[in-house]
Design a protein around this nucleic acid. Structure first.
Lengths: 243, 243
DNA sequence: TAGTGGTCTAGACCACCAC
DNA sequence: TGGTGGTCTAGACCACTAC
C-alpha cells in the first residue's frame, strides 16, 4: 500500500523494502532538510513493522549520507553535502599567507547545445545545457570549466537570472530542480593547453595542464552532470582517500 | 576482565567498548583470515551482553572492512583487501588487446636509511627501510617507486629472501609482520623527469611525469608506509570515487 | 543435523531537544 | 514535559554452511 513497500519484491527483507521506499520518497522530493521525516515509531506503525526494523532501514540511508539523525529532534534530509569544489585541487599561487584569496566565478557561456561525445556518453543523452566558466583566486584565473547537464532534468536552467548562479552549483541543482548529487567519480589526467584554454588561464598554448573529468550522480544513481575542468599542472595537487 | 571491555571508559556504550575490544584483539594478531572469530552467541555470553549488542559491535568492524560475515559459517578477519596497485592508473602502451601484458616488478634497492623529509613527516620517524623498484608491463617500464617503511614495525625486512618480495607488498606486510593496511591517502601531482627516473622509465629528462604520493595506515590509524611513484604523464588516468 | 549469521519482534530505559 | 533518537534486552524463526 504505502508507496512501494508492499508492492516491492516480497522475497526481499522488510528493512530493504522500507529503505527503498523511503529512498524513492526522498527522490520524489517529499521532504526538505528543514522538516524531519516521520519519527521511527510513526513509520513502524505506518508500515506495520517493529521499530528495530525501521531503525535498520534508516541506518542504511544515514550510511549513504542521505539522512541525518538528530537525537531528541528527528531525522532529517541531508542537502547536497559533499565538498565537491574542484578548486581545492589547485594550490593558490599566492601561498605566502598574505592575500586572503577570494575565490570568484565568471560565467562565460550558458546555452542549450548538442553534447560532445564524452558528455553524451556519460549522461546518456545529447540534449544538454552547456555552462562555461572561469574560476579565479584573487583575480588570478585558476580553473577553466565546461559543464554539461541534461536539459530534461534542468528545464529552464538557461533562463535562470544570472546572479542566482553562484560559484556552487550543487546547492542550486537541489533548490531549483530537486536534483540531489549523492556521489561522483573523478578522472585526473594530463594534457596541454590549446589556444582557448591558454588565453583564459593566461598561460601559453602547449603549457602542461591538469585535467579533471567528473561525472556526478543523483540519489537514484542516474548521471546528472558531466564536467571537464582544466588548470595549470604546476601547483596542481589532487587528494583522495582510499578505504 | 575480558580484554579492555570492562576496563574501557564505562560511560561509553557497551557496543563501542566491545567493538574497540575486538579491534585491538585483531590488531594484536589473535585471529587469521582462515579461522572464524567466536560466534555472536559465544561473544554475547563471554561479554555478558545480548546478541543484538554483539551484532552492532561486529557491524561496525564489518563496515570498516576489518571483518567479513559468512552466513552459516562464521565471521572472519579480512586480509589486506583494497586494490592498492598504482599500476592501474597508467595505460598500457600496448592497448591493442593482443599482448596479455604480464606485470613484473624489479627490485633495485632495499636498505635501512634516514628517511627524506616528506617520508619522515608522514611516518613520524626517520628510521626507515627504503625500497626502490621498477614495475613493468610486458618489459615496458611503467612505474618507478620509492617506498619507505618504519624499521620499528618491519624488523628484519631487509634480510627477507628476495623471492618473498612479490609485486604485492601489502599481503607481505600482513603475513610477515602482522601489519594490516586499512586505508590510504593519495596525492596526485605533475612534474618532470630527472636523470635517474628518466633512465629507468626510458623517457627523456624533462618529460612530463605523473606523481602519486601515498601514505598507508594500519588498523589503529598509524601511518606505516609512505611511497612516491612516478610514471609518464602521457596515458596517465587516475580514477577516484567521491561520496 | 548442529551451528552460524540474517531478519524481526516487542518491549525497556536513557539522553537529548524543543516547547 | 512529551517526543525524539540511542542503547539494550531476550527471545523467535529463517537461510545457509559444514560435516
Amino acid at each position: 500500500m504505502i508507496d512501494g513497500f508492499a508492492a516491492g519484491d516480497m522475497r526481499l527483507p522488510a528493512y530493504i523494502r522500507l529503505r527503498d521506499s523511503l529512498s524513492s520518497r526522498i527522490a520524489r522530493g517529499e521532504w526538505t532538510p528543514e522538516t524531519p521525516i516521520p519519527s521511527e515509531g510513526r513509520l513502524a506503525r505506518e508500515f506495520k513493522v517493529s521499530v528495530g526494523t525501521v531503525r535498520k532501514a534508516v541506518d542504511g540511508l544515514v550510511d549513504e549520507g542521505l539522512l541525518e539523525r538528530r537525537q531528541g529532534s528527528g531525522t532529517y534530509l541531508r542537502g547536497p553535502s559533499f565538498n565537491a569544489t574542484l578548486f581545492r585541487f589547485f594550490a593558490m599561487r599566492e601561498s605566502d599567507g598574505s592575500a586572503p584569496s577570494i575565490p570568484s566565478s565568471q560565467l562565460i557561456l550558458r546555452s542549450a547545445v548538442k553534447a560532445p561525445q564524452a558528455a553524451a556518453a556519460a549522461l546518456g543523452t545529447d540534449e544538454v545545457i552547456k555552462i562555461v566558466r572561469l574560476r579565479s583566486l584573487s583575480d588570478q584565473p585558476v580553473l577553466f570549466e565546461e559543464i554539461y547537464i541534461p536539459t530534461a532534468r534542468f528545464e529552464g536552467f538557461e533562463t535562470l537570472p544570472e546572479p542566482a548562479l553562484g560559484p556552487l552549483l550543487y546547492p542550486l541543482y537541489f533548490e531549483h530542480f530537486g536534483v540531489l548529487v549523492k556521489r561522483a567519480t573523478d578522472e585526473v589526467s594530463f594534457g596541454t593547453a590549446n589556444e582557448t584554454v591558454a588565453q583564459q588561464l593566461r598561460i601559453q598554448p602547449g603549457d602542461p595542464l591538469a585535467i579533471i573529468e567528473r561525472t556526478a550522480f543523483d540519489i537514484e544513481d542516474t548521471p546528472i552532470e558531466w564536467r571537464i575542468a582544466s588548470g595549470s599542472a604546476l601547483g596542481f595537487r589532487y587528494r583522495s582517500e582510499i578505504n
